[in-house]
Design a protein around this nucleic acid. Structure first.
Lengths: 211, 211
DNA sequence: CGACGATGTATCGGGCCGATACATCGTCAC
DNA sequence: GTGACGATGTATCGGCCCGATACATCGTCG
């Protein structure tokens, strides 16, 4: 999951760890608290070892003192061509973990870099999963209600409500995708395999990337 | 977290691993998928090593063949007095992890074994945490909106909606606790420290169990 | 000039997960 | 009858991720 998010973010700009964490927190704030350095740095190391990211030297604008204090500091990473391929591959293969809460959230956050067919597949997979959870909760609330205390039941009710709400949300998103009215068009840059289908936004309003 | 849930469940009845997992899934179905055996069995071992649970022998009703096939099978665990103390201690000390999604859900699921003052403290801590998340999302949606693509924004909006909804839910629960109209009275059994305050439900209307 | 908070990198122990293996039991189809 | 299948049941292993902790630099404000 972290691997996916890092590869996604580094396609927008090279970054160092601290920055990466801030951007991650902003982008994924709706679904998870804040990424831990205890997972971030080891993951960066892993991605670098795999050749998917590399260190981008800090290009010190010449004028500064060359190496007097040895100047150790931030390590900026950038994605490689192999990294972009890896990201595309991770998007394409949707496993079961793609549909759990965190996995879905992370994938959704990078829908702008995902082609429409895959978006639709993921949304439907998520819907199916939530529907199953909803049925499970209904079962418990119906059949096993007398075995549980009132607090537990209240928790189930709240969970059931959240499920129903999310299914409705997903239905809306799916309908939008089907009719071509996606919230935005996929980003077209990014060498190493362009998205094959840029759903044209017919009622065109696509929030500017930069003003 | 798992430790807490196991100690809580074993106070209702002795159980073996498989059963424990099913009960856990039923009780916590609203907040997490299903507990993995890869965490359940090591945790059981850990709890046993700490002396908080013990194996309860399978009392083979005499009539069966004594030990012809050696009869290896389910291992039933039951909670010890030290285990009950440990559980009470885990309830009393509310750390930051008590208010994250999973932690709060698990604690809430055992509110029937929690005294009213602690219930109130946990509900308010959770509310505070969700309010902070809500403010963070509002900030991002307000100040950093043009930096994010439409899908990411949609995710934030959905998250914000869920936050507002949960805060309202918590407000209701808190008001109920304050007025003594808790969904149910805490369980009174359980040796090793009875709950000190069984909030009586004065204006009794607690959602019909069955029509 | 020293305290403080933001920035920034890094490690360590441990909890939990997914995959996997394996054994028993009842039931139903062939 | 017998063999396939799904539920029951215990267990391990590698790996991801987290929380705690440590440490160093920089700008700012009292």
């Amino acid at each position: 999951m972290l691997e996916f998010a890092i590869l996604g973010l580094l396609q927008e700009a090279p970054m160092h760890g601290y920055e990466l964490r801030k951007e991650l927190t902003a982008k994924l704030g709706a679904i998870r608290a804040a990424i831990s350095y205890g997972s971030l740095y080891p993951t960066l190391r892993r991605l670098q070892a795999a050749g998917w990211i590399t260190e981008a030297n800090e290009t010190p604008t010449v004028s500064d003192v060359p190496a007097l204090t040895s100047r150790r500091g931030r390590v900026v990473y950038k994605i490689t061509a192999e990294g972009k391929e890896r990201f595309a591959q991770l998007i394409a293969q949707a496993g079961p973990e793609t549909y759990d809460d965190t996995g879905f959230g992370v994938h959704f956050a990078f829908f702008a870099r995902t082609d429409q067919a895959t978006r639709l597949r993921i949304l439907e997979g998520r819907r199916r999963k939530i529907e199953e959870r909803r049925e499970g909760l209904r079962d418990v609330l119906g059949r096993a209600a007398e075995r549980l205390d009132a607090y537990t039941l209240e928790l189930q009710r709240h969970g059931l409500d959240a499920c129903e709400r999310e299914v409705r949300w997903l239905e809306e998103l799916i309908a939008n995708e089907r009719s071509g009215r996606a919230p935005t068009a996929p980003i077209t840059g990014a060498a190493g395999g362009r998205p094959e289908d840029n759903s044209p936004p017919p009622p065109g309003e696509s929030r500017e990337e930069r003003p």
